[in-house]
Amino acid sequence: MQTRKIRHQFYLPDDLSQALDALAAKPGASKTTILTDALRAWLERKGHNALDTQFGPRLDRQQKVALRTETTLNAMAEMLDLLVTHQLTLAAHQPPFDTETEHLGQRRYQQFVDQVARRLAGNRGVPKLVRKITPTEDSR
């Protein structure tokens, strides 16, 4: 189906006219096609908000950073909630510190980390700051 075309007449500076002639000299190109494509691209570019085009990628990156920060804050809030609950209810009256108590404390800490990980699994995953105790950290 052929589209209806309207004839337009306009003047170009010499340098643009020569560049258009050089482009139209290539096989399969015509002045009408070149000018139509150029005008369409120019009008579409003008239709976009210049600020969105300029600042959009930066804002997208900042949004990703904000989401990561929110995830970390959620993890820290969950840990603080569990720690306060544990300290105020479960560990209020502990026996004097000895080797057995140290091992009990490490087991409880590992349970704490595991519980935080389970609670965060429903969110956006376990953040990097949640880790398991290694045997070398036992003496700390």
Score class of each variant (00 low, 15 high):
Lys31Tyr: 05
Pro96Arg: 12
Arg7Met: 07
Gln54Arg: 12
Lys5Ser: 15
His48Gly: 00
His86Asp: 11
Ala22Glu: 05
Arg4Thr: 15
Arg108Tyr: 00
Phe97His: 10
Leu51Thr: 05
Phe10Ala: 07
Glu78Met: 10
Pro95His: 03
Leu82Tyr: 01
Asp138Trp: 10
Phe112Leu: 02
Ala117Tyr: 09
Asn49Phe: 04
Glu70Ala: 05
Lys128Asn: 12
Ala38Asp: 07
Gln106Glu: 03
Val116Arg: 02
Gln115Trp: 06
Leu16His: 04
Pro135Arg: 09
His8Ala: 11
Asp138Ser: 12
His93Pro: 02
Thr72Asp: 13
Val126Ala: 04
Ser139Met: 14
Arg108Ala: 01
Leu23Cys: 03
His93Ile: 09
Asp60Gly: 11
Leu90Asp: 08
Leu129Gln: 15
Leu39Ala: 12
Ala25Gly: 11
Val84Asn: 00
Ala19Arg: 11
Glu78Leu: 07
Arg68Ser: 09
Gly125Pro: 05
Arg140Gln: 15
Gly122Cys: 03
Gly56Val: 02
Ala50Arg: 09
Arg7Ala: 13
Gln94Asp: 10
Glu70Ser: 04
Thr89Val: 12
His8Leu: 15
Pro127Cys: 11
Ser30Met: 10
Val65Thr: 14
Glu70Pro: 00
Arg119Cys: 14
Gln115Val: 06
Thr33Lys: 15
Asn74Arg: 15
Glu44Phe: 09
Arg4Cys: 13
Val113Arg: 04
Thr36Pro: 01
Leu83Pro: 00
Asp114Thr: 02
Gln62Gly: 05
Leu39Met: 09
Arg107Lys: 04
Val84Ala: 00
Leu88Lys: 00
Lys46Met: 08
Lys46Ala: 07
Gln111Ile: 02
Gln115Lys: 12
Ala50Asn: 06
His103Asp: 13
Asp114Glu: 07
Thr53Asn: 14
Leu129Phe: 15
Ala66Lys: 01
Asp52Gln: 10
Arg58Trp: 11
Leu80Cys: 02
Tyr109Met: 07
His8Arg: 13
Asp81Ala: 03
Gly125Met: 10
Leu20Arg: 00
Val113Glu: 06
Pro95Leu: 02
Phe97Arg: 08
Thr36Arg: 13
Ala66Leu: 04
Arg131Cys: 07
